Computed example of a mutant assay.
Amino acid sequence: MSEVEEGRAVVAVRGGSAHGPAHLVLTASVARRYYLDGRSKVEIAEEFALSRFKVARLLDDARSSGLVRIEIGHPGVIDVELSARLMETLGLQHCVVTDTPDDHPASLREHLGAAAAELLTELVTPDDVLGLSWARSVSAMATALQRLATVPVIQLTGALTRPGVDDSSIEVVRDVARVAGGPAYFFYAPMAVPDAATAQALRRQPEVARAFSRIGSVTRAVAGVGAWAPEQSTLYDATSEAERHELGRLGVTAEISGVLVDADGTPVASDLTERMIGITAEQMRAVPEVIAIVYGTAKVKAVLAAVRGGLVDSLVTHSTLAEALIREAGS
C-alpha cells in the first residue's frame, strides 16, 4: 500500500481488484496520476493513449473496487466526521467538535473558546446583531476572538459574580465590541435579585431597558449551557439550598442564560424566573441562531433539553461530550 497526505486528503492505492494483473496495473497507474500527481483526465488519456471516457471509467473502477481509498481529514483539532454526525443527529445549524482531552477543564475551555471564536468570525456578517450571555466558555471565546465583522453587541443577561470568576457579562460584551468595532449595549445589574419587584424596577432602568429593547433584533447569540447540579451551573451554585431543592422538584434539568427548562426543553416557571434580569425563553427561541459552547459529560441531558426546547441551534463542544450526546439521543 502506498499513501500520501496532501492537505486534507489521504489517498491509498492498494491491491485487491477482481480484474487481471494488467488491468490492475493500468488502473493503479491511472489512479496514481490523477489522485497523487494531480494530472488531469485529458493529460492521463494522452499519456496512456486512452480516451477520456476510458480514464473516467478506470477511476470509477478504482474507487468502487477499493483500489483507491480517500479519507477526509483535518489538519487541526476539529473532528470533522464527529462534527457532521452530531449536527445530523441533533438537527443543528452548525456544529464544531474539537478532539481535545477533557482531563483539564481550563485547557478544554480555552480550546473550545478558540474554536467558537473561529466559528463566530466565519459566520457573523455586518448585517448581524450579536447577543452575548455570560458563561465561562463565552468568556474564553471573547478572549480568543481576534477579528469580527462590525456589528452591535448586546448583553443578554445580568452579571453573576462568583468565587474564581474574574470577569462578568459586562466585560465580555465590551471585549467583543472592541474587537468588532461596533456599539456595545451593556448594563450594570445582577442576573438575579432578591424579589420580583426589584427585578421589575431594574428592568425599567434606562441602560437595562436600552439593552433589552434591542434583544428582538439579535440574529446570532452565544451562550453556555448549565446542568442543574452542583458545579455544573453558575446560577445553580448561586442559589440557596431551598431554591435548588424546589427547582429540582419542578423538574429543572438545564439552565441556558438564566432560562430554566425541564428534560423536554419546556421552560419552568418559578419564583427565580420572576427575579431574573435577562433574556426570556420566548426571546431566545426567536433568535435565528443561538450557539452554545459546552463541555463536560455531566451536561448531556442538559444539552439535549436545550436543543429540544429550541433554545440552542448550534454547538461547539468536545469529542467525549459529542459521542455521549449521540448515544443518548439514539437511546
Rank of each mutant, 00 (worst) to 15 (best):
E122H: 10
L123F: 07
V124F: 10
T125I: 07
P126R: 13
P126S: 14
D127R: 15
D127P: 01
D127H: 14
D128F: 09
V129F: 15
V129W: 15
G131D: 14
G131N: 12
G131R: 13
L132M: 14
L132Y: 13
S133Y: 08
S133V: 07
S133M: 13
W134V: 14
W134E: 14
W134Y: 15
A135K: 04
R136I: 04
S137L: 08
S139L: 08
A140N: 10
A140D: 06
M141T: 11
A142P: 10
T143D: 14
A144P: 08
L145T: 05
L145F: 03
L145C: 05
L145M: 03
Q146G: 15
R147M: 13
R147C: 10
R147P: 04
L148M: 14
L148D: 09
T150W: 02
T150I: 01
V151Y: 00
P152N: 07
Q155S: 05
L156R: 12
L156D: 12
L156S: 09
L156W: 09
T157E: 12
A159C: 11
A159I: 02
A159M: 12
T161Q: 12
T161V: 13
T161I: 10
T161Y: 03
R162S: 05
R162F: 02
R162P: 01
P163K: 05
P163Q: 06
P163C: 04
V165K: 00
D167S: 06
S168W: 05
S169M: 00
I170Q: 04
E171M: 01
E171D: 09
R174W: 02
R174Q: 06
R174Y: 00
A177G: 02
A177M: 04
R178F: 00
R178T: 02
R178W: 01
